[in-house]
Simulated scan of single mutants.
Amino acid sequence: MLNSHPRISDVAEAWRSLDPRRSLLNAPEWVETSEDDSPDSARYAVHHDADGQPNASVAVFRVDGNMFRNYDPVEVLLDCPEDAHENVAPEEVARLTALQDEASALLRDAMRPAAVCMLPGAYLPGIIRTATDAQTIHELLDTLDRAAQDWGARSTAVMHVPAEDSQLDQILRERGYVSSTVTAQCVIPVPGKSFEDYLATFGRKRRYKILRERRVFAESGIKTRWAGPEVLEDEAMVAEMGRLQSEQLRQYGHDIPTERMVALLRRIKEHLSPWCRVLVAERDGVMEAFVLSYADAESLYPKMVGWSDYAQRNFAYFNMVYYEQVAYASEQGLSQIVAGPETYDAKVHRGGVLHQRRMYVRAMEQETSVLVSLAEALDRVHQARLNAYVS
């Protein structure tokens, strides 16, 4: 039995040793930024080999409907992607939405609270391992089950498992989980050492479109600059970033108050300052847009964004989330931009490669038939929509 802890700081040194590449998304500081002040809302455990060396770890969070929707297995099950109607056969979309309508009230009652294994904001499961034996993975998942029992959870889930992780897939299925493709992490390779090297990877029509978007943005009067964590020391800047981010999330159905985003920015300043890279866009001294990114030794991660209507009309999204990120990553010698999920059309047409993620869910036994049918329908819809972007 693994000893679990309520704060990742209790196991930070052992946890950090599991990733010699020092990826930001595996770092204790990254996970700690998502912790809240609720008592016993998270559990962490580190597994050791026969010689006492750390070889695997697990992170588990209690989810009861008040987290971001893509962390909540119930909300993920009940979400029909907006672009499904464009890229999926109508009968498949109809089948999914009918199942979701039928199961909505039942699952919200029967599956919450949930104990969820994940790395928040990383689109990775909450399992890091150098060990390859099945027994170690079973012990990590036993920690998930114990947390669920202690919390009185009505379901357990393992979020954002890479589709190629066949070992974890097999073990989770053996333990009674049902699964579905739910999203894809998008990675943009950074070729060469300049934006021109990136531009050269596209055909003539795409290059023309990119250059036009760059020109319109440049002629808008908006000026961009890269800054570091000192931006987060400016309370006025933080307040405006929080407002713009909150408004941006609202467009995608996430009703997150500005105050919550400001509090998150303050936690980011506390825990993640060494990795912060802030792209600020201003016009006449007023912030029109921003992108908060992070950089480690290999990757650039644009994570928090916001822009005014004026900036959006002048291609702020394409310029700030893609082109300026590519230019900066090229200059810094980074190999890729980890651009996150969704908005696949924009990302794929700007060099993005999709890496599918699956969700595994296990609920109370009497709900299994509903869950299986819904997961299978959701999987078909997501597979079809993702295939549409790579075919």
Score class of each variant (00 low, 15 high):
residue 5 H to E: 02
residue 9 S to D: 13
residue 14 A to E: 01
residue 15 W to Q: 13
residue 15 W to G: 08
residue 16 R to G: 04
residue 19 D to V: 05
residue 24 L to A: 04
residue 27 A to D: 12
residue 27 A to M: 03
residue 32 E to Y: 02
residue 36 D to S: 11
residue 41 S to M: 12
residue 46 V to H: 09
residue 47 H to K: 13
residue 49 D to A: 10
residue 51 D to E: 15
residue 55 N to T: 14
residue 63 V to T: 01
residue 63 V to I: 15
residue 65 G to Y: 09
residue 66 N to F: 15
residue 68 F to P: 03
residue 77 L to G: 02
residue 85 H to D: 13
residue 85 H to K: 09
residue 90 P to Y: 08
residue 91 E to A: 15
residue 94 A to N: 11
residue 94 A to M: 10
residue 98 A to H: 07
residue 99 L to Q: 05
residue 99 L to P: 01
residue 114 A to V: 06
residue 114 A to Y: 02
residue 116 V to G: 03
residue 118 M to Y: 07
residue 119 L to I: 12
residue 123 Y to A: 10
residue 128 I to N: 00
residue 128 I to M: 01
residue 136 T to L: 09
residue 136 T to R: 14
residue 142 D to E: 06
residue 143 T to Y: 13
residue 143 T to L: 09
residue 151 W to Q: 06
residue 151 W to Y: 06
residue 153 A to T: 01
residue 154 R to S: 04
residue 155 S to A: 09
residue 172 L to V: 13
residue 174 E to P: 04
residue 179 S to D: 03
residue 185 Q to N: 06
residue 190 V to N: 00
residue 192 G to F: 13
residue 201 T to F: 04
residue 205 K to I: 08
residue 214 R to D: 12
residue 216 V to E: 06
residue 218 A to H: 01
residue 224 T to Y: 00
residue 228 G to C: 09
residue 229 P to V: 08
residue 230 E to K: 08
residue 233 E to D: 12
residue 245 Q to V: 10
residue 250 R to W: 08
residue 250 R to V: 03
residue 252 Y to R: 10
residue 253 G to T: 06
residue 257 P to Y: 14
residue 261 M to I: 09
residue 264 L to K: 05
residue 270 E to K: 12
residue 273 S to Y: 07
residue 280 V to Q: 14
residue 288 E to P: 03
residue 298 E to D: 14
residue 299 S to P: 07
residue 302 P to Y: 06
residue 306 G to S: 04
residue 309 D to I: 02
residue 313 R to W: 07
residue 313 R to T: 04
residue 314 N to M: 00
residue 324 E to G: 08
residue 325 Q to I: 06
residue 326 V to G: 05
residue 332 Q to L: 11
residue 337 I to D: 00
residue 342 E to T: 14
residue 345 D to A: 08
residue 352 G to Q: 05
residue 380 R to E: 07
residue 386 L to C: 12
